[in-house]
């Protein structure tokens, strides 16, 4: 009996997932669904991606710190070359974008499409600001001759911040595309799981940066 029960449960899970995506549940049913391990905010698939991404970046940051221990002098000389001001401004920009995205989800749940779309555009603009500031930082590093192959500090700096940059760029594009879809009325109070999924991806960029910034820019050499 056990395998049959398990199969039925799995099939029901997919039915529940389909209904949630189509907005076929009542609000109270959605609230109950969230208490299920398989239905975290934004859906299980995005959380599998988030888990993998966060663990990968964490491994990269530990590698950065371990290399810093074996090349203490190089790291002590290189860390002050990074622009901390751009670093903390970018942290505030990403956190503000996170607030805007959280407000966008809150608005669509209340059925306020226009407000939700405006919050998402604001979050997208925060993403663009982050990317522009990062480009300014990168260009000053390149002018100073600190490229990917300069030394182990800058190799790890470029890899960690570069991959994060790509994630923010992708998240920004997704937010702006979804904002236009919200304006066109493709999402509603009951059917907006895609927005929650995009929001989770955006906040993942926040999460990763919240550890990159202190480890790469702030820790004493």
């Amino acid at each position: 009996m056990k395998p049959v029960k398990h199969l039925i449960y799995r099939k029901c899970s997919w039915i529940k997932f389909y209904c949630a995506r189509k907005g076929l549940f009542q609000d109270s049913t959605m609230d109950n669904l969230r208490k299920d391990f398989l239905y975290p905010p934004g859906g299980i698939l995005i959380w599998i991606i988030i888990s993998l991404e966060v663990v990968t970046f964490a491994a990269g940051l530990i590698a950065f710190l371990v290399t810093g221990q074996s090349e203490k002098e190089l790291f002590a000389l290189s860390r002050p070359l990074l622009d901390r001001n751009i670093g903390w401004i970018n942290t505030i920009v990403l956190l503000t974008g996170g607030l805007f995205m959280a407000n966008a989800i809150h608005s669509i749940r209340e059925g306020k499409r226009k407000s939700s779309s405006l919050w998402m555009i604001a979050a997208g603009l925060a993403g663009i600001t982050f990317l522009v500031l990062k480009c300014v930082e990168y260009s000053s590093k390149l002018k100073g001759g600190h490229d990917l192959g300069s030394d182990s500090f800058f190799t790890l700096y470029w890899l960690l911040t570069g991959f994060h940059f790509l994630h923010v760029a992708l998240a920004t594009v997704i937010l702006l595309v979804l904002a236009s879809k919200v304006q066109k009325g493709k999402y509603s109070k009951k059917s907006h799981l895609d927005l929650e999924t995009a929001g989770s991806f955006w906040h993942m960029c926040d999460l990763i940066w919240l550890f990159i910034f202190p480890v790469v820019y702030l820790l004493p050499g």
Partner: peptide, 30 residues
């Protein structure tokens, strides 16, 4: 300094996850 900087980062990490990502409403396992 190291403990303080990393401690603040941890609190911020949990703040974003629990409030903005709404993990506070999710299953206890998450």
């Amino acid at each position: 300094l190291i403990a303080g900087i990393l401690g603040f980062a941890l609190v911020k990490f949990l703040g974003v996850a629990f409030q903005f990502m709404e993990i506070r409403t999710a299953h206890r396992g998450w």
